[in-house]
Simulated assay, not measured.
Amino acid sequence: MPQPDPLTAPLTDLMPDLMRVARRLTRETDRSQDLCQEVLLKLWVRLDAGAEIDDLRAYAMTALRNQHRQSLRRDQIPLGAPEVETMTLPNALDACALSETLCAIRRLPRDQERLMRMVAAGETSPADLARRTGLAPGTVMSRLARARARLRADLGL
């Protein structure tokens, strides 16, 4: 049986306050729920990546207000504008897939997990990864290959 995520409880405790502020900002139940979920997902991803946040409640409230402002700016873009065509809205299935992938990366052996986190952060050159980790480039490539194979198996791909 999977262990509960230690990040869930603090975020769950924030939900009532976030919803109250989101309802005040949007004045619409559906939009306030969407706004709250977007902020909680971003917070979860940030905390899962190892970010240390001193005052989670204050940080969450600021993130909520910033996300609301961003959505207002997005809504002001006229239809047919080039920005609208290139903009992609958050997709719940993508968010779930990301969460599953992050959990699968955490289950990898420590050396493979470290390399995969570096790749996920944008570092894709085996030579750069080798230099940053002190490993031989061949070792980096073989560990990444094993990590990717295990991730494909774990995720059923």
Rank of each mutant, 00 (worst) to 15 (best):
D128V: 08
Q37F: 03
L14D: 04
P137R: 10
N66Q: 08
A95I: 07
D111K: 12
V84K: 11
T124Y: 10
Q67C: 14
M118R: 14
L144F: 03
A104I: 05
D48N: 08
L18H: 03
A22E: 10
L129S: 00
D75G: 14
P90F: 06
A60Q: 04
R131N: 10
L40F: 00
L102W: 02
R152C: 06
R20C: 04
L18M: 05
H68I: 05
R148K: 15
R152A: 15
P16W: 04
L79D: 15
W44F: 07
Q37G: 05
A49E: 13
D48I: 00
P109W: 11
D30E: 12
A97K: 11
E38A: 14
A104L: 05
I77W: 11
D75R: 15
G138F: 00
V84Y: 00
P90H: 06
K42M: 13
L102Y: 00
S142K: 13
A145L: 14
A81G: 12
C103M: 07
E83S: 11
V140F: 01
M1C: 08
T8M: 06
V39R: 07
L89P: 00
P82N: 05
R24E: 09
A121D: 15
A104W: 00
R131Y: 09
R69L: 10
C103G: 11
C103S: 15
A97I: 09
P16G: 01
I77E: 08
G134P: 04
L18F: 03
D154M: 14
P78Y: 06
T139H: 03
L7F: 06
T133G: 02
T139V: 10
E113S: 13
D54E: 13
I53D: 05
A121H: 13
L89Y: 10
R107A: 15
A104T: 04
C96Y: 14
R106P: 01
R114H: 14
Q3G: 02
A136D: 12
E100Y: 02
C36F: 04
R74G: 01
A92K: 11
C103P: 00
G80I: 07
S71W: 15
L56M: 02
R57M: 12
P78L: 13
A49I: 05
R74W: 07
A60V: 06
L18S: 03
S142P: 00
D75H: 10
K42L: 10
L18A: 02
T12H: 09
M61P: 02
A92N: 06
Y59L: 05
P16V: 06
